[in-house]
Nucleic acid binder design. Structure first.
Length: 282
DNA sequence: AACTGTCCCTGCAAGC
DNA sequence: TGCTTGCAGGGACAGT
């Protein structure tokens, strides 16, 4: 499932393959993908427009357009962005197609493919982000983009009631962490998911902060995680390899790779399947 | 205001 | 074998 590292990998692909190119034609299949506005709004907002940047905040992909508007794409659970040659066979659930041109490179197509249809594509006015895109406007700190330190983490956790895992998953607090990386981060930090965030000592916060940065950076370097069921791939169709380095996610009932003594427990925390070591996480 | 639970949706795997 | 059922999960939304 695309979380920060997968979205960052896709962003880098967009920078390579899409930035600087002009969209000459847009096709919208399933309207649910453009539900925030409409089929017509997306086609009008993108046709004849040049993409001038590709950035990311949390799990949100953002492209500035030379029209002054901004494109937002969110992969949610099962979304994929694929760059393809014109006329290539499209996979099932290809909901949006952008036809791209520029002077130097041959024409190509950017496909938004999304079986579970939770993902979305929208063009919005950056001046109206608060009303048109409240979820994006209220996003929390991005650990790889914004200033981020143990002290900032302490301030974010102050007076919070939920458990540690719920806070890591809360996009209004820290942006970009999903279920896989929350479990991996907590394991590296040697913290149980049900710890109370407001009670963490400064030493523990230093450890947690380091674990967040370490796990996310390592995962970006590995091109993200590709699981059996979701088939995440980058823009060129390549799988990630960080799944080979997962130490707890999906390992319920197995022995701990870190301490060799504990068993990986599988429970539900914050409404999500949660895996952690019975021995080395406290 | 901030938290929790439910829903959306499809593909896959497990179980009968 | 072929069906049914359950599970995966990000974020919106309703309810507490």
């Amino acid at each position: 499932m695309p979380e920060l590292p997968e979205v960052e990998t896709v962003r880098r692909g967009l920078e390579q393959c899409v930035v600087g190119r002009k969209i000459v034609k847009v096709e919208v299949g399933r309207e649910r993908t453009v539900r925030r506005t409409s089929r017509e709004a997306l086609i009008d907002g993108l046709t004849g427009v040049k993409i001038i940047s590709a950035t990311r905040r949390g799990k949100y992909l953002l492209c500035d357009l030379d029209s002054g508007q901004r494109l937002m794409m969110h992969l949610r659970m099962s979304g994929r962005l694929i760059i393809a040659e014109p006329g290539a066979q499209r996979p099932p659930h290809t909901h949006v197609v952008m036809h791209l041109v520029n002077a130097e490179s041959p024409e190509s197509e950017l496909w938004f493919v999304d079986p579970r249809t939770f993902g979305e594509v929208v063009v919005f006015d950056p001046d109206k982000i608060k009303t048109q895109m409240p979820d994006l406007a209220n996003l929390g700190v991005d650990p790889l983009i914004d200033e981020f330190s143990p002290e900032i983490l302490r301030d974010l956790f102050k007076d919070r009631r939920g458990n540690l895992k719920a806070l890591l998953l809360n996009q209004h607090v820290v942006a970009g962490i999903g279920n896989i990386y929350a479990d991996e981060i907590l394991h590296l930090a040697k913290l149980r998911p049900d710890r109370l965030p407001s009670r963490l000592t400064s030493t523990t916060l230093v450890r947690l902060h380091a674990a967040i940065v370490e796990v996310l950076n390592q995962a970006v370097m590995a091109g993200g995680s590709t699981l059996k069921d979701t088939q995440y791939v980058d823009l060129e169709g390549q799988t990630g390899s960080f799944q080979d380095e997962h130490r707890v996610y999906g390992r319920g009932g197995l022995s701990c790779l870190t301490c060799g003594k504990g068993r990986i427990l599988m429970t539900v925390v914050a409404g999500r399947t949660t895996c952690y070591c019975s021995k080395c996480q406290h």
